[in-house]
């Protein structure tokens, strides 16, 4: 399982990539593996606001359903519509093609409690 060093991670198993005032959000390799084959994903509209630690969407496999929690507060800048039609990308390329939303940061302080790759790996070891 891979956990790229240049990303930040949340306890809800999302990854976050910070680029200037925009963060990109997706789910981790560990999350997609636990879910199994993803069959459906529900994402917000562009322009809506999201709140830190509140659900912004849903991801479903055949027998599980999981909320997607926003790692930060802000407004949705861009949505990856491509994965709505091909949710298998979430299993195949969770850190690449299967990014989910890009959010314009509302409060930079929100980023301070995100985990590093090493911290996240330790976190999932403890959770198992």
């Amino acid at each position: 399982m891979e956990f790229p060093k240049d990303l930040k991670y949340t306890k809800e198993h999302e990854w976050v990539k910070v680029e200037g005032s925009i963060v990109t959000v997706g789910i981790t390799d560990y999350a997609q593996d636990s879910l199994g084959d993803v069959v459906y994903v529900e994402l917000p509209q562009e322009g809506v606001s999201v709140t830190k630690n509140e659900p912004f969407g849903v991801v479903e496999s055949v027998k599980a359903v999981s909320d997607l929690y926003s790692p930060i507060s802000g407004s949705v800048h861009e949505v990856n519509d491509a994965i709505i039609d091909s949710p298998e990308a979430i299993n195949e390329d969770p850190y690449g093609d299967a990014w989910m939303i890009r959010v314009e940061i509302g409060n930079p302080g929100d980023l301070s409690d995100l985990m590093s790759s090493d911290e996240y790996q330790k976190f999932i070891e403890e959770e198992k």
Binding site: Y40, E60, S61, V62, K63, A64, V65
Partner: peptide
């Protein structure tokens, strides 16, 4: 059976 994630045993 399909679309089971709508149902009570999962959701």
């Amino acid at each position: 059976l399909t679309f089971s994630t709508r149902e009570q045993h999962i959701r």
